[in-house]
Design a protein around this nucleic acid. Structure first.
Length: 451
RNA sequence: GUGGGUGUAGCUCAGUUGGUUAGAGCGCUAGGUUGUGGCCCUGGAGGCCGUGGGUUCAAAUCCCAUCACUCACCCCA
């Protein structure tokens, strides 16, 4: 018999989170809560409804949706076999799953366009770094079923509104490009391949591989030789169809109409295969493109790739962890609602019993209240009140119980007075102020058919 | 996947050319006469010095390996 587990001398090794995967502690949740609130608010205003697709999908969803030869699929997916031997993947991005769902549930018959948003964790098996995690949070928007350039611009505007709400409006710059339709793009791809043929030896290893799998990616390689070659490579400009040009001009025109500053960047390609026409990224002005905070684009071909009929769509996604990073760097604090109004201190068993009721009454009225039931001395209870930075403490001892009164202590002034036990809740409300109460109500349910 | 940096208390870090029982500040906790917080004072808990091996009379300290964290490249959120 082994008694290792019960041997008191054996120290149990503590388990940590897996690499690149982090807890969100209460302090950081104030940021998360705030950002989610902003996103929900802006989404609701614009008629978007929320969708949650599974964290785990069949690997084919992403292989097909994102593109077999993208970096995301080739080297960054969290893929494993489940017990039945099917290849499963934790979602590396949001769009492919949304489109899978769109088709699975026949959303093509919903009134077009279908406007959806999500706030979800995502996974990429990358080497962790500042602002880059293996599990990270993204929110994103998708508009499926219409191809007007105005929608591209409205997506961008939505992102701007959200950045503005977060106090980050001025620290990002918008980079845009137009990569054309699938057709004009494939002509361009051919031209690129022709250009690079015979020059393979000057390319880095990765680019030699890219040349036939995904030639567009040659353009944003940062290896010196590759970038020299790409400078001289044929420009997409020449292969843009009339339709592409019109689309692009309209986008720029609309952006100007909304006073949204942008930078044209003909090297911007995006790492996911499904994009067409307009693509964009938001870059940190100080560090440039190495840590984009969000990006998006039009993906008119994706629904078809996923097995549906030809359907235009546009969307964007944004990294919540990176937004938080930027808020912190700019000393922007989210509004906190975790402050406590009152701590109730008790002395003796009888008082403790009474306190349970008082605490309940205070909370029901919207007063944020904590008890100090586990502590014996009044001293340690008031110390706790101090640590919570509560403005008021209630003190109930055996004398007060006998008299039917309770002490209200103003922690800032250090003054206290007795009030009748029956009046204490309203007295506290007066002190805190009706407006500061936590009176959130979830809304009321109503009768009706669920479809 | 490639390269750099760092691992000592819950946190931030000292720890001399190898030499007693490994330290500080903050935090936590308990006291400083009856039932009263913050400031101050005193005490306490909390460490296999990341892990394994090697050198040595002796290792937190030197060597090797390994793991973890972190930053950068690639790419992206």
């Amino acid at each position: 018999m082994s008694d290792t587990a019960t041997d008191e001398n054996v120290k149990v090794r503590r388990i940590q989170t897996a690499p690149g995967i982090h807890d969100i502690l209460p302090k950081d949740h104030e940021y998360h809560t705030f950002i989610k609130k902003v996103v929900r608010h802006r989404a609701r205003q614009a008629g978007f409804t929320r969708i949650t697709t599974p964290v785990l999908e069949f690997t084919e969803v992403f292989k097909r949706g994102v593109g077999e030869h993208t970096d995301v699929v080739e080297k960054e997916m969290y893929t494993f076999e489940d017990r039945s031997g099917r290849s499963m993947t934790l979602k590396p991005e949001g769009t492919a799953g949304v489109i899978r769902s769109y088709l699975q549930h026949g959303m093509g018959s919903w009134p077009a366009p279908v406007e959806l948003y999500y706030i979800e964790p995502h996974f990429r098996y990358d080497r962790p770094q500042k602002g880059r995690y293996r599990m990270f949070w993204q929110f994103g928007f998708e508009v499926i079923g219409e191809d007007d350039p105005a929608l591209d611009v409205q997506m961008i505007q939505m992102a701007f509104k959200i950045f503005e709400d977060l106090g980050l409006k001025d620290i990002f710059e918008l980079q845009i490009n137009n990569i054309g339709t699938l057709k004009s793009r494939s002509q361009y791809k051919e031209a690129l391949i022709n250009y690079y043929i015979g020059k393979e030896r000057s390319l880095c290893e990765a680019c030699q591989d890219r040349l036939h799998k995904n030639p567009l990616r040659l353009l944003d390689c940062k290896e010196e030789d590759c970038s020299i070659l790409s400078e001289l490579a044929p420009k997409f400009e020449a292969y843009r169809s009339k339709e592409d040009k019109e689309h692009h001009e309209k986008v720029k025109e609309f952006l100007e109409e909304l006073n949204i500053p942008f930078k044209e960047n003909d090297r911007l390609v995006r790492g996911l295969d499904y994009y067409t026409q307009t693509v964009w990224e938001f870059w940190d002005k100080s560090t440039g493109g190495q840590n984009a905070v969000g990006g998006g684009g039009r993906y008119d071909g994706l629904v078809e790739i996923m097995g549906g009929t030809e359907t235009p769509a546009v969307g964007f996604a944004c990294g919540i962890d990176r937004l938080i990073m930027h808020m912190k760097q700019n000393n922007l604090l989210p509004p906190s609602k975790d402050n406590i109004h009152v701590l109730v201190a008790q002395l003796g068993d009888l008082a403790k019993k009474k306190c349970l009721r008082i605490i309940e009454a205070l909370r029901d009225r919207g007063v944020k209240t904590v008890g100090s039931m586990g502590k014996a001395s009044i001293k340690s209870q008031l110390k706790l009140a101090n640590k919570h930075q509560v403005p008021y403490a209630l003190i109930l001892g055996s004398t007060e119980v006998r008299e039917g009164s309770i002490i209200i202590r103003d922690m800032k002034k250090g003054q206290q007075r007795h009030v009748a036990m029956d009046n204490v809740v309203e007295e506290i409300v007066k002190l805190i102020g009706e407006d500061n109460l936590d009176k959130y109500t979830p809304g009321e349910v109503s009768l009706g058919s669920s479809d």
